[in-house]
Simulated assay, not measured.
Amino acid sequence: MTIESIRAWGDRGVFRPRELGPPSLAAGVPWRLGGVAAVPDTVLEAGRVGALEVRAASTRGTSHRFDGVVRQDAVGVSGLDERYVLAAVADGVGAAADAHRGAELAVRHALAELAPMLPGADLATVDLTRALRAADRAVRAAGPSPGERATTLTVAVVEAGPARRFRVVRVGDSPAFLLTDGAFLPLLTERRGFFSESATDCLPSPRWPAQHASGVLRAGQALVVASDGLGVPVQDTQAGAYLAQAWAEPPGPVAYLHQLQFDLRSFDDDRTAVVVWARGEP
């Protein structure tokens, strides 16, 4: 098999990932299947809850595809009684052997904890950190060596009614943004000066208190919850301008996934994002 025939593998034409600069060195070569059948390369979800439009996707980075490593990000979204959108994003710590499992456990148990708390409650009074604690217990209790399941976790709740308030809570560095006026505005700040600046807090047994953010989604704005595989290029490269324009209004689900899979050298980690748009005044 020649190099030319190897690099002919992959999507072409309108399906080819958008190149925002020099392509990833792993782009255009055959993917290697991961070793865990229960963790697919890509997941995609979309829907409408009241006046909110929702898109969610998690996709394996080109480096993991090239190396045959399973996707270590996880994502979950749900609508609750047409009143709320619940979202969670987890980014398994790359050095942990079962990071993918920790991420999936964190998302699943955080959303399961939140769902029964919200009906009949005022969002402002709900203890969102309970979702983080439930995820932490699940990651620790899943077997020996819980550190091998290390993962970040960011959880968000958005009201689908007229108020359209949102709240976000996180452990680790998976970011949340307000997409408004063509820019991604960070809602949570990076921690500095506690331990090593390069250290990422994570489940299980986080070292630092959870971070919180809250606000209101105005018409035309969107809340974005992501892994740093998207958060870093959005803040540091032309990907920010590209996606701000592409996501000025909700794209179709397949178009959303295609936009998320842009190609840019050195930014080849798993990418995960939930975007919740306020469609207009109810």
Rank of each mutant, 00 (worst) to 15 (best):
R12G: 15
D67Q: 07
L230R: 06
T237C: 01
A26D: 15
P146E: 04
L25V: 12
G50D: 08
A90F: 04
A134T: 15
W208M: 13
G147N: 09
A121Y: 04
T152G: 03
V77H: 02
A51R: 12
R165H: 08
P233L: 03
H258E: 00
A156M: 08
E159S: 02
A131C: 12
G21L: 06
L118T: 08
T62A: 03
A27W: 11
G92D: 13
A141C: 09
E4H: 05
D263A: 00
R140P: 10
P206G: 09
I3S: 12
A51M: 05
G28T: 03
R71I: 02
L44H: 11
V93E: 05
R71H: 01
G143H: 09
W277I: 12
R16N: 13
E82D: 15
L33H: 07
L217K: 06
A134R: 14
F66G: 06
D122I: 10
A241D: 14
R279W: 00
V274S: 14
R164L: 00
G193Y: 06
H212Q: 10
V139G: 08
R65F: 01
L230T: 09
Y84D: 14
G172R: 04
D181M: 07
P175V: 00
A213W: 11
E281Y: 09
T189I: 07
G240A: 08
V43F: 09
V232E: 13
T129L: 01
F15A: 14
